[in-house]
């Protein structure tokens, strides 16, 4: 029974999650791009400082070391969290084997010690960020359900994955652990386009988008008034 669930979760369900993620992110990407193109065409001032935008965008990849309370923690913690998050799913030997079986692609794997280190890093920083979100009133007061549930989901994925790789340290039996890992992983992948995780595709555009939005279409104001059937009078 478990075996069938596992085959399903790793096979058709995984492929479905992946497809939902790719199509969902693709949709968001094209909508964002179309929106930016339209904004550019309507813009009153089309001169863009490309190098400044590129610099600001690139600066986000490096954590901020300005010491000021939670800033430092969030910045470095988030950076390390993301590093592990991207490396482990892609470069874990076990995952590469899955890709090979599924789509016939393979690439070099990370030595298991490194994979373990990154996994533990993700778990530690992930838990730390979640605890911070709960304990800081500024973050807690503005957090929605997904802001608590998604980090929890990440922790489940990585903890179950770690236990699945290390049966000796696993308090639970192997197959259920693996099932939890794969199901939670599938859920996470499916959730990407429908939650704030969509930032994977939107984040690189943040500064360009903001810059374009400041270029107000010169005739927008009068058109808005005419749509609202109002005079241009104060």
């Amino acid at each position: 029974m478990e075996y069938e669930w596992l085959t399903f979760a790793r096979g058709p369900l995984f492929r479905l999650s992946l497809m939902i993620m790719i199509l969902g992110l693709g949709r968001l990407f094209f909508i964002a791009l179309a929106g930016m193109l339209q904004a550019y065409r309507r813009a009153g001032n089309k001169a863009l400082d490309g190098s400044r935008i590129a610099r600001q965008t690139a600066a986000g990849f490096v954590p901020s070391f300005r010491p000021h309370g939670m800033r430092l923690f969030y910045s470095i913690g988030s950076f390390l969290f993301h590093v592990g998050l991207i490396i482990v799913p892609l470069f874990l030997h076990g995952h590469i084997q899955l890709w090979e079986k599924g789509v016939g692609l393979s690439w070099p794997a990370l030595p298991i010690v490194w994979a373990d280190a990154f996994t533990l890093l993700v778990i530690a920083t992930g838990a730390g960020l979640l605890v911070r979100r709960i304990s800081y009133p500024q973050s807690r007061s503005i957090s929605r359900s997904q802001d608590f549930l998604l980090p929890l989901l990440f922790l489940i994925v990585f903890i179950s994955g770690f236990f699945a790789s290390h049966p000796n340290w696993n308090p639970f039996s192997y197959k259920p652990t693996l099932l939890v890992h794969v199901l939670s992983g599938d859920l996470l992948i499916m959730a990407i386009p429908f939650s704030k995780l969509s930032h994977v595709i939107l984040w690189p555009f943040r500064h360009l988008a903001t810059e374009l939005a400041w270029r107000f279409p010169p005739e927008a104001g009068s058109r808005i008034l005419s749509t609202l059937d109002r005079e241009d009078k104060i």
Partner: peptide, 11 residues
């Protein structure tokens, strides 16, 4: 409808 805000708010 007429401004450049829509795509930005979406993002």
């Amino acid at each position: 409808k007429h401004s450049n805000y829509r795509f930005l708010l979406d993002i």
